[in-house]
């Protein structure tokens, strides 16, 4: 709080007083700071605002030069045209299905693996852990060719499983979750075990409830990552009706060429689902990044 106000020159005791004065007459430095901050934030919103402004113009006005921000004849025609074609709805559904698959599977397998590494000793454990953590170094994009051949052999091209399965391999989440589990005191689990609970039961009813923040963070970031993944779904879907939202927007929309209001309307529609997720989970996202960063 004091960082935003002028520090008292004499002593720290009069802080409350200083703060009330500052509220009435902010120092020039504070005014400048807030002005710069507000301008930067507004500048950051320009691309999104421009996309929205373009999308509600009649198609004939979009190419006017010099550009205008506000149209005298706002219209939702571009949105109706895009939605009427139907493919963007289909792509959104595809994204929702494949992304949910990725998120659920990732959470299950990563939590199990992290708990196994955190709590149990077994033959070859250090080796296996090193092997999995080493996978963080490998850029997944370098494996696209053999992964694609594998998917062809498994007959999973143009299927939801084909889109989802290779994305489930996320060694970094095993690492993050293991570190979180390591920090949970084992006394609770010992108590549950003495009551006769098996290892899966202990994980489910003792460890997972204590891990809600990290599970939420991993879940949200898996979801965002899978939703926005482009390269793999782009390779493994060839039929337009199987494309995910980013792939459909990236490949098919280019074909609409100069109908800028429609192109921007589809961009806005493509942005909406995750912006909603972001607004709903803003706090979890912020603390999730914070937790990963500070401990990292």
């Amino acid at each position: 709080m004091t960082t935003a106000t002028r520090p008292p020159a004499t002593s720290g005791a009069s802080r409350v007083e200083v703060r009330t004065t500052a509220r009435r007459r902010p120092a020039p430095g504070v005014i400048a700071l807030y002005t710069v901050a507000a301008l930067a934030a507004l500048l950051w919103l320009v691309p999104l605002a421009w996309a929205i402004a373009t999308s509600i113009k009649p198609e004939g006005e979009t190419t006017a030069m010099p550009p205008t921000w506000f149209t005298a004849n706002p219209t939702f025609e571009a949105y109706l045209n895009v939605l009427g074609r139907g493919d963007i709805v289909r792509w959104t559904a595809n994204s929702l299905i494949s992304t949910t698959l990725v998120t659920v599977l990732t959470l299950i397998v990563c939590v199990l693996a992290a708990y196994g590494f955190s709590r149990f000793d077994f033959r070859g454990r250090p080796w296996l852990f090193a092997l999995i953590i080493g996978g963080i170094l490998i850029p997944p994009q370098t494996l696209i060719v053999p992964q694609f051949v594998l998917m062809t052999q498994l007959g999973l091209v143009d299927t939801y499983w084909g889109i989802a399965l290779p994305q489930v391999v996320a060694p970094v989440f095993v690492f993050i979750l293991k570190r979180f589990f390591d920090a949970i005191p084992r006394d609770y689990e010992d108590a549950a075990r003495m009551d006769g609970a098996g290892p899966v039961r202990v994980l489910w009813s003792v460890v997972l409830p204590l891990s809600r923040p990290i599970l939420t963070a991993v879940g949200i970031f898996t979801f965002i990552g899978a939703w926005n993944n482009f390269l793999w779904p782009f390779l493994v879907t060839t039929a337009p009706e199987m494309m995910t939202l980013p792939v459909g927007l990236g490949t098919v929309m280019g074909g609409y060429g100069i109908q800028y209001a429609q192109v921007m309307a589809s961009a806005v529609l493509g942005a909406v689902p995750l912006l909603v997720v972001f607004l709903l989970f803003q706090r979890h996202i912020v603390t999730g990044v914070a937790g990963a960063g500070i401990k990292g």
């Binding site: 930067a40 421009w50 373009t54 965002i224 792939v247 921007m264 961009a267 942005a271 912020v286």
Partner: peptide
């Protein structure tokens, strides 16, 4: 403002910036 663009699909970001 500063974080919202991070959640945009790459195709959305590309369409908007190509247009600008």
């Amino acid at each position: 403002s500063f974080f919202a663009p991070f959640v945009l699909p790459v195709a959305v970001m590309a369409l908007i910036w190509e247009w600008m």
